[in-house]
C-alpha cells in the first residue's frame, strides 16, 4: 500500500483527553490520509470510541471531558473556538454502533442532513438520496419504498441507511464506531464491501472490536491500549509481523 505517501487529511498532535480527572487518551499523535481506510483496534476501555468522538467533537455534549492538543482537519485546528461544530460534523460524518434511524421515512432520514446544510432544491436532494443509497448498497432494496418508515427496515438495512444518511452530507472523512457489532455476517459483509468502494472518495476511520474485520477492511491499522497508541502501520504488516509484544498478545487473543 502506498498510503504513507498520501497527503494527510487529519493530523492529530499530542491529543490528551481526560474525563473527570481520569486519563482516557494519553498524548496521541497520528494522521489519517486521503483515500485510505484506517482501522483502530484494541481491547475495551482503550479509548477508541472517545478518540472517534473527538474527531467530530461529539464529546462536547457530555459532561466532564477535557481535551488538550490539536486535531487538524485540512490544516485547521477543530478545537479552535471559532469552529462551527455543525459544519465540522458534516465534514466528519459519523456512524454509530447501534443504528438509530430517526422516527421518519427512509427519504426523510436521508434529506435531513442536506436540508440542515441549506440544500433546498428537490432535484438535488433526490439525486443525493439516490447516490448515497447506491453507495451504501441499499438502493436496490428500498428504491420502491422510500417513503416507508425507516424503522421497518431490518437491522442490517438500518445500519446501511445510517451510512447512506451520513454519505448524503458528502463528508470528507467517514468515521464508524463498531458499525457491525449489532449485525449478522451477511449484513457485515455488505457494509465492508461498501467501505471498499467508498475509500476512493472519503477517508475512512473504522473502530472495530473484531480484529478479522480490521484485517479484511482496512489499509492501515492502529492498535490502542489503555489510551495509548501502541503501534500503527500497514494492516498486512501489523497482522503478520507486529513490532510490539503487546500488539502480538492482543492479536493472538492473550487479552481483551
Amino acid at each position: 500500500m502506498a498510503a504513507e505517501e498520501n497527503t494527510p487529511i487529519i493530523e492529530i498532535q499530542n491529543l490528551t483527553v481526560t474525563h473527570f480527572e481520569k486519563v482516557i487518551l494519553d498524548n496521541l499523535s497520528l494522521s489519517v490520509h486521503k483515500n485510505e481506510r484506517l482501522a483502530i483496534i484494541g481491547p475495551a476501555n482503550s479509548g477508541k470510541t472517545t478518540f472517534l468522538r473527538c474527531l467530530n467533537r461529539l464529546n462536547d455534549l457530555s459532561q466532564g471531558f477535557k481535551v488538550t492538543g490539536k486535531i487538524l482537519l485540512n490544516g485547521r485546528n477543530i478545537f479552535h473556538p471559532a469552529t462551527d461544530t455543525a459544519q465540522l460534523r458534516r465534514k466528519v460524518g459519523m456512524v454509530y454502533a447501534v443504528p438509530v434511524p430517526l422516527p421518519w421515512s427512509i427519504y426523510e432520514n436521508l434529506v435531513y442532513g442536506p436540508k440542515l446544510a441549506g440544500i433546498k432544491n428537490k432535484n438535488r436532494l433526490d439525486e443525493l438520496v439516490e447516490n448515497s443509497l447506491k453507495a451504501a448498497f441499499l438502493w436496490d432494496e428500498v428504491k420502491d419504498r422510500l417513503h416507508m418508515a425507516a424503522r421497518n427496515l431490518s437491522g442490517g438495512q438500518q445500519q446501511r441507511l445510517c451510512v447512506a444518511r451520513v454519505l448524503a452530507l458528502e463528508p470528507e472523512v467517514l468515521v464508524l464506531d463498531e458499525p457491525c457489532s449489532a449485525l449478522d455476517p451477511i449484513s457485515t459483509a455488505k457494509i465492508e464491501d461498501a467501505l471498499f468502494e467508498l475509500k476512493s472518495r472519503h477517508a475512512i476511520v473504522l473502530v472495530t472490536n473484531n480484529t478479522k474485520q480490521a484485517a479484511r477492511a482496512s489499509d492501515r491499522t492502529a492498535f490502542f491500549l489503555m489510551g495509548q497508541l501502541i503501534e500503527m502501520g500497514d494492516t498486512g504488516r501489523i497482522f503478520t509481523n507486529p513490532v510490539d509484544k503487546r500488539t502480538n498478545d492482543y492479536l493472538i487473543g492473550a487479552f481483551g
Partner: peptide, 14 residues
C-alpha cells in the same frame, strides 16, 4: 431517546 439527539448532531444540526 437520547440516541435521536446524537444522531441529529452527527448529521450536522445545531
Amino acid at each position: 431517546p437520547a440516541a435521536y439527539r446524537e444522531a441529529s448532531y452527527g448529521l450536522g444540526s445545531t
